[in-house]
């Protein structure tokens, strides 16, 4: 992000976010992120399959404890993310504009992203009441069904947005107790990397959200076939859709295929939380 200032600005290194740390790709690779007119604006890490595997390990390790946190606590943390994002608006604005947004577009997307986090923060202790059930079974048993996190969720972000696509998929996954391994938009990875810093400063435990930047074509198969990923949330079509859904069968991975315009207010809902929830039903006799 070159400017005309007198002093030479230092450039930010955009790194991966894995297990609460900011490593470069273990492969040492990176790629040039270009602006609309084709100029290079920054280097982003080109995550390898090994980085992805490491991120999945971190996500798995963090999942039980994250799901065991109280819903209230997860809501607080999501709200904290919103607060931190609000506080770092300037940087995100700058990055979005560098990646081709107009000021208006960037402002809109940033505000929507913050609002979306607030929206899902509020759901943390409410969706359960809406999607749970006490089932009146025809025997002397108390029977209830509650949502529970699926576990480790792979998230493949849509290509066209820098931030809102990412936030719209991460928030509903983690508010419900999942941990996730996110692959950002390949062409607009900067906000994703910076969002990792926001998460890091927001009391999100290490491993709950892991963010990779890099080549979707290279990583998609590992995502889909990895036996320790429980669900994949993605936007894809054509051959890549087929690859994802087909490889996912290796461990009966839940495939949540979402194509949406995330800037729209209606693209947030507790049904997105439920996409990465299982329903657990428990029976117990009623007697003395």
């Amino acid at each position: 992000m070159a400017t005309k200032a007198n002093r030479l600005e230092i450039l930010k290194t955009y790194k991966l976010y894995i297990d609460g740390k900011f490593p470069r790709s273990e492969s040492g690779r990176h790629y040039l992120v270009k602006s609309k007119n084709g100029n290079g604006i920054a280097n982003a890490c080109l995550a390898s399959r090994k980085d992805l595997r490491d991120a999945i390990v971190a996500a798995r390790k963090a999942q039980d404890a994250w799901a065991a946190r109280s819903a209230y606590n997860r809501g607080q943390i999501l709200y904290r993310i919103a607060e931190m994002l609000e506080g770092r608006k300037a940087q995100f604005m700058e990055e979005m504009i560098a990646q081709g947004y107009t000021v208006g577009q960037a402002t809109n997307e940033l505000q929507s992203s913050i609002d979306r986090l607030v929206h899902y923060a509020g759901w943390s202790d409410k969706y359960q009441a809406i999607f749970s059930a006490v089932n009146p079974v025809d025997s002397s048993h108390f029977n209830f069904s509650v949502p529970e996190a699926m576990g480790v969720v792979g998230i493949l972000c849509e290509e066209k947005s820098a931030l809102i696509g990412l936030v719209s998929l991460i928030a509903p996954a983690i508010v419900g107790g999942n941990t996730c391994v996110v692959l950002s938009s390949e062409s607009k990875p900067l906000c994703a990397s910076t969002f990792g810093e926001v998460l890091h400063a927001s009391d999100v435990p290490a491993g709950v959200v892991n963010i990779l930047t890099g080549s979707r074509a290279e990583l998609i198969k590992t995502y889909a076939s990895h036996m320790d990923v429980n669900a994949l949330v993605f936007d894809a079509s054509g051959e890549s859709l087929k690859t994802i859904q087909s490889e996912a069968a290796a461990n009966v991975k839940r495939c949540i295929h979402l194509m949406d315009d995330w800037s729209q207010a209606k693209s947030q809902s507790p049904y997105h939380i439920m996409n990465t929830q299982e329903i657990k039903t428990t029976w117990h006799p009623i007697g003395v």
């Binding site: 025997s139 029976w283 117990h284 006799p285």
Partner: peptide, 30 residues
């Protein structure tokens, strides 16, 4: 997906049934 506490193999149309992991996806019932 289904936990029977102090009972086992109980089924009811009002009660969702279905698995986690490789036991399947989706729920039937309820």
């Amino acid at each position: 997906g289904v936990v029977w506490a102090n009972t086992y193999n109980k089924f009811d149309p009002t009660s969702p049934f279905g698995g986690y992991k490789e036991s399947g996806l989706g729920r039937e019932g309820g």
